[in-house]
Design a protein around this nucleic acid. Structure first.
Length: 276
DNA sequence: GGTAAATGATTAC
DNA sequence: TAATCCTTTACCT
């Protein structure tokens, strides 16, 4: 379908002009990187990384359905509340874009607004290949081989908590999935990669895959199994996360105090009782 | 109305 | 390690 492309903020204007009126063929992701394939030769792919602040906003009438990957949570990396789809019936007209909108894609019956991305570049096939070459296997992609993940971790003396955040080791997981999945499989983030048994890495990769896929389905990250914890959970955070952002509080499983500390410049959360 | 913090990654020292 | 990119939201006065 033909789309109108613009850059209200201005920083993507030159590229938006080249895309304007062309067709969007595909939208796909590898880890936290999103690629929008437009028709045409040369640079015809928009490479997007939302980074820490980036977000999409969608608005349209009831007939507006996005290429699914644009609306999927993985576009936002780990962020939830990703799809703030403002569907209205009857007459619909595009709302004015916020001044911060880097890229607006107007599909006629709806718009997609991109704000604050760490990266938004119009590139060619070679640059896409170069970007993918820096990424490890993505647990959400069936065409990825987890063996590379096992080998990298087992061959490293770095801590597993750092390795799970390293996108060249495994692509996709961020601070939330690191904290939650390491907790769910009972591995301490402080343990060296070389000291984690292979079967435990298999369990970790599998848990990343299921937990992240669940996030895509929900459009929100919820890693806590309700059957697994005492109820009622009054605390809204505890209803979603076992350890993430729960420093100083009691572990939902064992009651030990959840630890929050720095690891390589990022906040790390873990339970000293459940994670060995 | 101001300030801090946030789901990330690159670059410079 | 620290600074930087850049935006929104939550929470404070």
């Amino acid at each position: 379908m033909r789309v109108r492309a613009s850059s209200p903020q201005g920083r993507f204007s030159r590229s938006a002009e080249r895309l304007d009126g062309t067709r969007l063929h595909d939208a796909w992701a590898w880890g936290k990187h999103l690629f929008l394939d437009f028709e045409g030769a040369g640079d015809h792919i928009v490479h997007i990384h939302l980074g820490l602040y980036g977000s999409w906003r969608f608005s349209g009438d009831e007939s507006f359905t996005l290429p699914t990957h644009i609306g999927a949570p993985r576009v936002r990396g780990e962020h939830d509340a990703l799809v703030e789809m403002d569907a209205s019936s009857g007459e619909w007209s595009p709302p004015p874009a916020r001044p911060s909108v880097r890229l607006r894609l107007d599909f006629g019956n709806g718009v997609a607004d991109l704000s604050g991305p760490a990266r938004c570049d119009l590139v060619g096939e070679a640059e896409v290949a170069a970007a993918l070459a820096k990424l490890g296997p993505d647990p959400l992609r069936a065409d990825c081989d987890p063996e590379a993940f096992y080998d990298r971790v087992r061959g490293s003396r770095r801590r597993i908590g750092e390795l799970v955040m390293d996108q060249s080791v495994v692509a996709g997981p961020g601070n939330i999935y690191r904290a939650e999945c390491l907790f769910r499989v009972g591995i301490s983030p402080l343990r060296r990669g070389s000291a984690v048994a292979r079967h435990r890495l298999q369990a970790l990769y599998a848990d990343l895959a299921t937990t992240m896929a669940d996030g895509v389905r929900r459009g929100q990250i919820v890693t806590v199994d309700p059957a697994d914890v005492p109820d009622p959970l009054t605390d809204a955070e505890a209803a979603r996360f076992y350890v993430y952002h729960r420093a100083g509080r009691a572990c939902l499983r064992c009651g030990a105090t959840v630890i929050g500390e720095d690891m390589a410049g990022r906040r790390l959360f873990r339970c000293p009782g459940c994670q060995r």
